[in-house]
């Protein structure tokens, strides 16, 4: 039982600004209210490859687990840890994020992949974001009989949250745009 969906979004901001916004989106206090399901973000590790211009980062996201009340009741907890791995290639201008849950994984696996690339129609001004989400309820879990329903709930919740995420990204981009014009720096 797998649900997968993909989404695309064009930001009318350059790639540099959009990826800067992506790093900041969970930390800004204003955004914390919108993305209230994200409780905490910690950087676990990072590595810079000076010869290639690639930056690897691993972060832990503590999230308020999506799902209906009976899911919480059965699994006995409502927070979930996810690990997000990011690769930024400054030379080719690409950013790739992959996030998956590392708790509750015997019940459900959620994997989300996001890519930010310069938009082919306007590579210096716009950014295309491609997102793929895959939600898999484990067939042998005690939830199997309800799985269908839960999957749909998960999908709904994730779609709501990714809409909120885009809203926050747009706001961060505007903020960075305003900041850079006042500092004379082009991000």
């Amino acid at each position: 039982m797998v649900k997968a969906y993909s989404q695309e979004h064009t930001y009318k901001h350059p790639w540099e600004r959009v990826t800067s916004a992506s790093w900041r989106k969970f930390a800004d206090p204003e955004n914390k209210r919108t993305l209230s399901h994200i409780l905490q973000v910690d950087t676990l590790n990072h590595k810079l490859e000076p010869e290639t211009g690639k930056l690897y980062t691993t972060r832990a996201l503590t999230i308020h687990a999506p799902g209906p009340w009976f899911l919480r009741k059965i699994v006995g907890q409502d927070i979930c840890h996810c690990v997000e791995s990011t690769v930024v290639d400054a030379k080719t201008r690409s950013m790739q994020l992959a996030t998956k849950n590392i708790s509750l994984e015997k019940y459900v696996e959620v994997e989300e992949k996001i890519r930010y690339d310069p938009h082919p129609d306007n590579p210096n001004e716009w950014t295309i974001c491609r997102q793929e989400t895959c939600i898999r309820i484990k067939p042998l879990s005690t939830l199997a009989s309800m799985a269908e329903k839960i999957e749909q709930k998960c999908v709904d919740k994730f779609q709501q949250n990714s809409a909120k995420g885009r809203e926050v990204m747009e706001r961060m981009c505007k903020y960075l745009e305003a900041e850079s014009s006042s500092r004379g720096i082009s991000v």
Partner: peptide, 30 residues
């Protein structure tokens, strides 16, 4: 939920690092 925020002793250090990282990313790395 409360117990989930138990790494909060590191909150200030986390903010300091993330602020520094964000500045470095935008102003240098990019």
């Amino acid at each position: 939920r409360n117990s989930s925020t138990n790494t909060s002793p590191c909150a200030d250090l986390r903010t300091a690092y993330h602020n520094c990282f964000n500045r470095w990313y935008s102003d240098k790395f990019l």
